[in-house]
Design a protein around this nucleic acid. Structure first.
Length: 126
DNA sequence: GTTCTCACA
DNA sequence: TGTGAGAA
């Protein structure tokens, strides 16, 4: 049905996702994942792998580990509230990015204006 | 190979 | 938000 191994070592996941084993341990220390242990050694199941994928996607979208942790914590608890939190954080993020984009566009326009003036005043005719 | 802790940016 | 180093 669903394929792939049932068990993964920390090195397996680090290799698959192109991150360090240190980063994975770091995420665990922050409570984002909670792999089982065989003795002292971490054993990751599909569920842990799935959470890791969500962590990396959240990071890629610019969310903090804290945000991602808050979101993941609701997976086992309140799925309705999880959806609400996600919507709220996504709105926040979009608002910030849109503002940053507008600021960048303003800066770009200023620089382009400066370049235009500089060319007409100090450059040989082209 | 894996674990942990401490220091560091 | 991670990494480096060192010891086990």
């Amino acid at each position: 049905m669903s394929d792939g191994p049932d068990l993964y070592s920390i090195a397996d996941l680090a290799r698959e996702f192109g991150i360090s084993t240190r980063a994975i341990r770091f995420y665990e220390s922050k409570g984002l994942i909670a792999p089982e242990r065989l003795g002292a050694t971490r054993v990751f199941r599909r569920r842990d792998r799935a959470r890791l994928i969500l962590i990396l996607r959240g990071k890629r979208l610019g969310f903090s580990l804290r945000d991602i942790s808050d979101y993941l914590a609701l997976y086992d608890a309140d799925r309705g509230q999880q959806v609400n939190l996600l919507a709220e954080k996504v709105d926040e993020r979009l608002e910030l990015l849109e503002q940053q984009l507008a600021d960048l566009q303003t800066t770009i326009a200023e620089l382009q204006e400066i370049r235009k003036l500089a060319r007409t005043r100090v450059s040989p005719a082209s």
